[in-house]
């Protein structure tokens, strides 16, 4: 049941416990309890929206930073990853397989700000062997949502 509830919330975080109760046939107070618990144990991390900031002329600069790291005894990549993800500028941090180790998504107001963060904060961290910065030029799809030119479903008003 919890998976079904989470799926509904992931798709629309505003769905109320009462609505979920109807949709799943689970009593409303039980739904509320499950959600509370999921929030408490951080199964639900937070509720957020997907916004196309360009629409309000508020462009942030995003960059994907490939980071090559020398793993450390006992803790592997984790401690270096932590030193990176503690910075609020690092919006997402992933450990990857392949030619580099960590992928860091960085957001800033200007290209300068991002570049400064990389050269002054990220690259000097002990154990970081090298970085490659890719500035994002255009967003086509975000978290499953197509930003522009989403298809419209056109149907006849009544089909028997």
């Amino acid at each position: 049941m919890i998976k079904e509830i989470l799926k509904i919330l992931e798709n629309d975080a505003r769905t109320t416990a009462k609505q979920i109760s109807t949709m799943t046939g689970t009593p409303s107070d039980e739904v509320a309890k499950i959600i509370k618990q999921a929030e408490k144990d951080r199964t639900i991390l937070k509720y957020k929206t997907i916004i196309n900031w360009e629409k309000v002329g508020d462009e942030q600069v995003w960059a994907l930073i490939e980071v090559k790291v020398a793993p450390q005894r006992d803790v592997g990549f984790d401690s270096i990853a932590e030193r990176i993800y503690r910075f609020p500028q690092a919006r997402s941090v992933y450990l990857l397989s392949g030619t580099y180790d960590l992928l860091v998504l960085v957001a800033g107001k200007t290209m300068h700000e991002v570049a400064d963060f990389v050269s002054q904060k990220l690259a000097p961290i002990e154990g970081v062997q090298g970085t490659v910065t890719h500035f994002m030029l255009k967003r086509y799809k975000e978290d499953g949502e197509i930003l522009e030119g989403r298809e419209e479903i056109r149907r006849q008003p009544v089909i028997l």
Binding site: I153, R155, Q156, P157, V158, I159, L160
Partner: peptide, 17 residues
């Protein structure tokens, strides 16, 4: 039906996907 605009239709017997 054809003469009214802006309706919500629960009359369409086909998927909305």
């Amino acid at each position: 039906l054809a003469s009214i605009e802006g309706i919500i239709s629960l009359g369409i017997g086909e998927p909305d996907f």
